[in-house]
Design a protein around this nucleic acid. Structure first.
Lengths: 356, 356
DNA sequence: AAGTCATATGAAATCGGTTTCATATAATCA
DNA sequence: TGATTATATGAAACCGATTTCATATGACTT
């Protein structure tokens, strides 16, 4: 009568071992101190024989915890994201949590749906690489004591742990470096800032730097909406006559790729015609020889997960922020040019990318 | 008395709306046909007011389905994997499934733990980029009617759907191309094959091709165990005196990166000193100008998820295999060289990578 | 010998939903 | 008009675990 395809339950184990569900449950929860040796062995055997695995579902229902951690990332294809995921995954696995991974595609509506879904799955905590909206939904989560750790980006009005970096400082450092290398005409090319704090901070830092230093009247910020307008912008920027050498500064690895491809297809050479530096440090930047501002994304992922798990373990301290270091990777795409000098004269004999 | 921090339950909704749990449940399950308009409205309001979201946990317990799909990938940092994830995620989201993502790190033991964990979470189905072991555990899953779809790699003795590519054909095509381009001394550099079907098939195809065509007595297969031995191998291979031009053929994007970095650090030039081609097509291959055998990983992810969901929807047909097309991306790293000619003479005026 | 305590176990309630079965009223039919 | 059917709802069992409370036995006190 018993369906052999059915997964065995605790009741099946109990019957097979000739004991009660209670005793089996004790066995499962490591409260074995009051279990007789013989009983212990019988349960062990029954579990083995039936290939029994307790249902996390049933377990979680009573215990009010799912051992599920949700993570919503903005773009799963971005190597920055991938590195983060690896970090969080490693930590979660170590602590016997499983990761529910969602890809918001930088779309606030999709993000909202995901928050809802994750809540329905009763996640124990959430790691969020946010689009910046959905504040109220997140506050509701918080009120239910589901800890949230923000990754890389802020949500207005949310006082929770955050793992990110000092965008203003990093932008200043990069720009300072570019200026010292002799580039005074700089284009900052970013994905649309929307409500994304990281992007906004970087653009603001860019503007203030330019204003403070009185460099780069020729400088500009460009938001990439589609590839063809990026092409137009870059063409115009590179062919512009300026007093000083020019550089393009991209806001993340995805934009870097787009920009590099655009530059390539326009027939420009890096760094002969245009220097290039970028936030993020995808593994290929080393091969191609592109200077970057690298933040250890893996470490960010690890820190965020550690933080969340600390909260789950009961840490009720004030929300904290963790900043990973940003390091400038100097490579061939930003060689030093004599100050005052214009393009087509660079001191490095190395090229980064070739055009057709 | 009621704890305001507690998540509302169906009972709370029922009380607030002045109806029974049953009626609320009907509302939730879209069996609204027999619900009076006024009742409907009251329930709607109660749900709104309480910000109620049904617990998937409780739901799944009775319904015996979790709306969770497990996916175990071998290396989450590999861009091939990332593209797959994007595909599966898109499909799963569309069908209201959530993805439990696990990273086995190509470690059979970790994979085994993950299978266990996923089973405990009562996943409705599994997408598996396998290490090749763990057959028995997977068969057990199958017996419990949890559908499994294999990605890219086989598990011995498992008759389930598989989404992959024709590795033998693809290897032949690539080698045939290299030979036509004038490279008769070819090194196939792969990650350790272990029990991974894809890798084994490719190596076998390499051997048979070499044997059949009577080319490349100078050819070799090298398994990358650590970076320094790769360096040694490449140095020896490139400096070897051979009658024909030489090429390195890497087995995936991760090895490609390692090889490119090694070649670069050895001071060799691509393709002047050594041609380069690879399985996988990471986005940067285009920028650097590396020829590849590209398989649409995104499409693989989509197909695998579609397949799994079809199974979940009741498709009980024979296991099928789906092969995505492999296309050869011809780029600057494998220029044509005159047959019989040796190195340092290549017809392209374009270089792929520069050494210091 | 009666009371106390440590050891070992089980019955039944519970978690938050779904589902089965029962029931009450109104509308339709013969 | 009495029987049938369609409409609208609820009580209680159930899913697979945990947890509370109860209980039985043997050992140890006093």
């Amino acid at each position: 009568m018993k369906d052999s395809r059915r997964r065995p339950t605790i009741a099946d184990v109990a019957k097979a071992a000739g004991v009660s569900k209670t005793t089996v449950s004790r066995f499962l929860s490591d409260q074995a101190e009051y279990i007789a040796e013989e009983t212990y062995r019988k349960i062990e055997q029954a579990i083995q024989g039936l290939n029994y695995e307790p249902s996390q579902m049933a377990r979680g229902l009573k215990a009010k915890q799912s051992r599920l951690i949700g993570i919503i990332v903005a773009d799963i294809a971005n190597p920055f994201t991938t590195a983060i995921l690896r970090g969080t995954e490693d930590v979660c696995h170590k602590h016997h949590y499983s990761l529910l991974v969602c890809n918001s595609d930088n779309d606030p509506t999709k993000e909202q749906n995901y928050i809802r879904t994750l809540r329905s799955h009763h996640i124990d905590g959430l790691i969020l690489h946010t689009t910046g909206y959905n504040q109220s939904m997140l506050l509701a989560l918080q009120k239910e004591k589901t800890p949230v750790v923000l990754l890389d980006r802020e949500v207005n009005g949310m006082h929770v742990d955050l793992v990110g970096m000092d965008n203003t400082q990093a932008t200043y450092d990069a720009l300072d470096y570019l200026v010292r290398q002799g580039y005074h005409s700089i284009a900052y090319v970013t994905a649309p800032t929307a409500d994304i704090s990281t992007r906004i901070e970087r653009v603001q830092a860019f503007h203030s730097f330019i204003a403070e230093r009185h460099v780069g009247e020729e400088s500009a910020v460009f938001q990439v909406v589609d590839d063809s307008s990026l092409l137009d912008f870059l063409q115009a920027f590179v062919s512009r006559k300026t007093a000083t050498a020019k550089a393009v500064f991209t806001g993340n690895a995805v934009i870097l790729l787009k920009a590099a491809l655009a530059i390539q297809s326009l027939g420009y050479r890096i760094p002969d015609d245009i220097a290039l530096i970028s936030f993020d440090d995808p593994d290929w930047a080393q091969i191609v020889g592109i200077s970057t501002i690298s933040q250890s994304a893996y470490e960010m992922g690890v820190t965020a997960a550690d933080r969340l798990i600390a909260r789950l373990a009961g840490d009720a301290g004030e929300p904290r922020r963790f900043y990973v270091a940003a390091t400038l990777q100097e490579r061939a795409s930003t060689p030093k040019v004599a100050t005052g000098q214009s393009m087509r004269t660079h001191s490095s004999n190395r090229q980064a990318i070739h055009s057709e």
